[in-house]
Design a protein around this nucleic acid. Structure first.
Lengths: 253, 253
DNA sequence: CCATCGGTCGTATCGTCGATACATGCCTGG
DNA sequence: CCAGGCATGTATCGACGATACGACCGATGG
């Protein structure tokens, strides 16, 4: 739908044509990754690829078609690079690895990810979108074959995709100093418990929760001095976050 | 940042100015909801609002500022129509209701939602984004006070937001015949189990109860030094046995 | 009562965008 | 060698976001 392939091209010319096409795609991808979405204009891409602006329309139906090709190209490249992906023996661990891979792709290519999964209008028509879903359902099928799937395969695919999508977009929206890696792992484990029928594996005693509860109502107290209250707040923060190792006594703002 | 407010406007003219501003916002919101993002151009908005195209720039810094105002306006309108939630007695049920409300907003205003949460670049700078987060942390705080929060408050807020974001955007990406309501409920319950405790860590309400609960499990902790733990124990004793009932529990704000 | 000044209004216009038209080549297939 | 299809290159279109500038209007200060 996005391709403009003339009929009956000679064998030799087809190679040159494909070469130009790839050069345009890579120029656009480079521009997208380095200068953002708005920098990807027909003129800028044409200049970077060393072709004339109208030449783009001989390879892609329109600007949207080019962007779609860029997305698919980038996604394929990432998967090829990470295709160490040794398919762990444990299917659930395989599920985690796949989710991590999808998220890592988003974090490594923020502009590209926003293009693929930012606007819902692009939806399932995109070639890159379908490519992502294909390898997803494949992993899910292995999971279902092992009897570890709690829900319908299609629902599982959507759940995995939706959690990854929300995690990546939210992560990218946060200022860098507020990006807590626990968000990603929590989203992932939340997805795992929702999709698989493994036991929830609740960790931690009630101590952090109790600390959080007290800290939440701490401003109401009138017994301690303000200095005492301040120190107590710090301790409660450490106790509340004690299940994480990165808790380097970060004062709450 | 998005507002262009001249200094020293007469009282009477300010009303007219605000009226025009609102008319522009509503025209843009109408255009956005009915004809999509691309239909919201300066000329189309100006024509729909009955003003001249350059007049927009006297009320908003640029097109992005107008879109931001549209997003905040729509979000505020939705929350007002839903009477800002009745605040159920059960805090967890309250959490579910809040999540459902956010998701319902996205499903009811797809173009607006894509504008607010589609592009990560807009990020936390958006006024509408912050408005959404504000009512979120408020609900979370009530949850933490009840001892039902499993994770840090900020992490909980991000988890709730990320699951809703992924659910809405994924839902909107799906063709209508593939939209399974189970996706939404599964995402919601997954979020609930990730954020809350099964059983409250603090029985009873109020500050003394929270202090007693924490003191009961204090020996389990390994974060604080023994001296710190000792002093903390004393303070918890004072807070737990506080004879001051101070019913005027007033959080400083 | 009038001069002045800040803000608005209306028109014209700028530079850039995506996309297309058209004449001129070049290269392949016969 | 020739004829036709495709790429090339230049010019251009309509629409976009944004701005410049002069004519207007209303409130303020003397």
């Amino acid at each position: 739908m996005d391709d403009v392939t003339p009929a009956a091209v000679p064998e030799a010319a087809a190679d040159k044509r494909e070469l130009i096409r790839r050069r345009v795609i890579e120029a656009a991808a480079d521009l997208l990754a380095r200068e953002g979405r708005d920098a990807v204009t027909t003129r800028a891409v044409a200049a970077a690829a060393g072709v004339q602006p109208p030449a783009i329309y001989r390879h892609f139906a329109d600007m949207d078609g080019l962007l779609d090709a860029v997305a698919e190209h980038g996604y394929a490249r990432f998967l090829a690079a990470k295709h160490a992906a040794p398919a762990a023996d444990d299917p659930i661990e395989d599920l985690r690895a796949g989710w991590d891979l999808a998220v890592e792709f988003g974090l490594s290519n923020p502009e590209l990810y926003a293009l693929m999964y930012g606007e819902p209008r692009r939806g399932t028509t995109s070639a890159a979108f379908q490519a992502g879903m294909r390898i997803l359902v494949e992993r899910i099928h292995r999971l279902a074959a092992g009897g570890r799937l709690r829900v319908d395969e299609r629902l599982a695919a959507n759940l995995i995709h939706a959690t990854a999508r929300g995690a990546v977009l939210t992560w990218l929206s946060l200022p860098e100093d507020q990006r807590d890696p626990a968000l990603l792992t929590a989203m992932r484990e939340s997805m795992v418990t929702a999709v698989t029928n493994d036991k929830p594996a609740v960790q931690g005693s009630g101590l952090p929760a109790a600390a959080r509860a007290l800290r939440a109502v701490l401003p109401e107290q009138t017994t301690l001095s303000s200095a005492e209250q301040h120190l107590l707040g710090e301790w409660l923060g450490r106790l509340a976050g004690s299940d994480r190792h990165d808790a380097t006594a970060r004062p709450p703002e």
